[in-house]
Design a protein around this nucleic acid. Structure first.
Lengths: 217, 217
DNA sequence: GTACATTTCAAACAAGTGTTTTAATTTAGT
DNA sequence: ACTAAATTAAAACACTTGTTTGAAATGTAC
């Protein structure tokens, strides 16, 4: 009886795979339990509801990632020197890539799930995330503000959400994008390559100079 | 019998409103026909299927917007001078804002629909768009390439998709973002204000200098 | 080995979906 | 005014969804 994968783990593994590729709403419990080779009722028995299953799937990654990020943010905040924006954004790289240790396709899968979580209109996920990890997020925003002292808080708010859009959308459609890139440009980028392309793009956008024209309000 | 709004228009108006706020998949035909005060079977009678209804809702805007964009792109391509990126992106502003003439909340509604179209996993919409307006899109890509002669095509491909993510995500969650901005920063931005904030952000990101570090491939 | 709690299973449930059908009604042409 | 086509209406259809039920099976402790 060595190496027995529990029913719960079988469900989580199948669910995360299907959620990532099909989205939360468009994945049925019957698909999940079918792939997991497990009885349909097992989901409700072990997780209570589909909603809680979704949260459990994300929690498996978040509980590893977020404390690491929180620690890195605190460290950067502690040393008083003004951090450059690229450095702040680069903090994400290592913790994200280390998710490959918690699951085979960890990083890619998690980012894809994150994308789904924000594009599907799953209100409870937003709440779940802010409730559990809101304070870590605040630290990050503080770091960005320190790196861009000339930008008003409202401008940073908008630009960070612009950036969130880039990340979420890129990750949600990551697979399709990589396939197109491979076909059209003969280049084979892993998730790590995408991340390294993203950071300078985001840094330039967030730090772009204020234009005082055109605003008709 | 003056000013009679046809059943089809009643359906389209209700559908676009519900699609924009709830998404395509999460809006049922019964909600639509309920709001439109129309019989359920009318949708299938007039549009054939829900899928075709979705396309019709988008088509009402696209058939106005895309020819205008195409014309502007062609014009920019004709004059040989090298266009700066901000100028190329700014081409979108006027045609987008003129959508307010085809419907009361035209611009905001259309952009929100566009966001839904890309975030919901509606494969047929991608196909529909590329099939009808692919060549207009090619002109835009060409303009961007001319504006950024130092960037390889593959890099432009990625950065344009990053930008698409920003636009789509911002527009899909536009309403929520505007509400937060109003509450936290006491600022009341219309859709026009958001567009004017977007363009310098996108331009900076797309034109960001190539970094030759970190790529481990 | 008996008693108890945990877990699995097949089946049914209640609610919602898009679509089709058939008849009634309205509209338009001559 | 009569006929034929176009539109509306109510009902049913076939199917999928998440969840619950109650009995069977399995595991655990004494």
């Amino acid at each position: 009886m060595v190496n027995k994968t529990t029913t719960q783990d079988k469900i989580l593994d199948a669910a995360e795979q299907l959620f990532a590729s099909t989205g939360f709403a468009d994945t049925s419990l019957r698909q999940i339990t079918g792939m997991a080779q497990v009885n349909l009722a097992a989901v409700n028995y072990h997780f209570g509801s589909k909603k809680e299953l979704i949260q459990s799937v994300l929690q498996r990654y978040l509980s590893v990632l977020m404390p690491r990020l929180d620690q890195e943010f605190s460290q950067l905040l502690a040393c008083q020197k003004q951090n450059d924006l690229t450095a702040v954004l680069s903090v994400f790289i290592k913790p994200l890539l280390e998710l490959n240790k918690v699951q085979h396709h960890g990083t890619r899968m998690f980012l894809q799930l994150l994308g789904r979580g924000y594009t599907d209109v799953q209100g409870h996920l937003r709440w779940f995330f802010n409730h559990h990890y809101g304070r870590t997020l605040d630290k990050f925003v503080l770091l960005v503000q320190q790196a861009c002292p000339d930008l008003p808080a409202s401008e940073i708010f908008w630009r960070l959400h612009f950036s969130l859009g880039t990340v979420v959308f890129t990750m949600a459609s990551n697979q399709a994008l990589q396939e197109i890139a491979a076909a059209d440009f003969n280049e084979n980028v892993e998730i790590e390559g995408v991340i390294h392309r993203l950071i300078p793009y985001l840094a330039a956008g967030i730090a772009s100079p204020l234009t005082l024209s055109g605003q008709t309000h």
